[in-house]
């Protein structure tokens, strides 16, 4: 079986500075992979390379076996890569339902969208996702009026309904309360299996809640890869990132 996401010697050179320097990894279908690393380790840049925001200078990105290296952002998105940014971004002037409708559209061109109604199956799926993210009651509200946590969940819902096979999440719990973090973990755990996830996260309690395997980046390279327990006891990881205290 091909890996859902395969990186092969991925590197980017910002006029001499190699933010990502030959990263290779394979994420299996339905797996949830956590990316760890200190500030500047190249986590966000790696996501930029996968989603097409930044162009790789070396190496390849394969999504479901298909080479998407160097494609433009919306083409990569259509190839099945969904991305959530660190700062939540939703369509603030549209209602929650409209946000999901936009995310749901299977046809990207202007001409094919000069129509109105959703199909029955689309409506059903929309209702299902609203329930999954627990925002049924807010469906008619403007997204700009949602709380921070609700905005994050809406964005997760948009990734779900987009039906991306590979989802990139950049610090999904940033700025959340404990209660909100727990609910986010629950939503993310439901995504496992159906979607393949790559998550950047710092909150170790949260990481333990969701992670199967962890990849640690350091100075743009893969330092270690393995289970939570393996990473927690890895001497080089401790030295490079966690310090002497171990994982808090």
């Amino acid at each position: 079986m091909t890996a859902a996401l395969m990186l092969d010697g991925l590197a980017v050179d910002f006029s001499g500075f190699r933010a990502v320097d030959g990263v290779s990894m394979a994420v299996a279908q339905g797996e949830l992979r956590v990316l760890l690393g200190a500030n500047g380790a190249g986590k966000t840049t790696l996501m930029d390379l996968i989603s097409g925001k930044t162009r790789a200078t070396e190496g390849k990105v394969l999504v479901q076996g298909r080479d998407v290296t160097g494609l433009r952002e919306h083409r990569i998105a259509r190839a099945g890569v969904g991305r959530k940014f660190q700062i939540p971004s939703v369509f603030s002037g549209l209602t929650l339902r409209q946000n999901l409708e936009v995310a749901q559209s299977r046809r990207p061109s202007v001409w094919s969208n000069l129509r109105f109604a959703l199909g029955m199956s689309e409506k059903a799926r929309l209702a299902e996702v609203l329930e999954l993210i627990g925002l049924e009651a807010e469906a008619g509200r403007e997204a700009g009026l949602l709380s921070h946590g609700q905005t994050q969940w809406l964005e997760l819902g948009m990734l779900m309904i987009q039906d991306a096979s590979v989802i990139l999440l950049d610090e999904p719990t940033a700025g959340m309360t404990q209660g909100e973090t727990a609910k986010t973990a629950e939503i993310i755990n439901r995504l496992k299996g159906r979607h393949t996830l790559l998550v950047v996260e710092h909150d170790m309690a949260f990481v333990r809640d969701i992670a199967e395997r962890i990849t640690v980046l350091h100075l743009g390279r893969v330092l270690a890869e393995g289970s939570v327990a393996f990473i927690e006891n890895h001497p080089e990881v401790k030295a490079a990132y966690l310090g002497k205290q171990g994982i808090a």
């Binding site: 989603s51 952002e73 919306h74 083409r75 998105a77 259509r78 969904g82 991305r83 940014f85 971004s89 939703v90 369509f91 603030s92 002037g93 549209l94 936009v102 995310a103 559209s105 990207p108 964005e155 948009m158 987009q162």
Partner: peptide
């Protein structure tokens, strides 16, 4: 509202 979000939805 967010051209980046729309872009990353494809």
């Amino acid at each position: 509202d967010s051209d980046t979000r729309a872009l990353y939805l494809g």
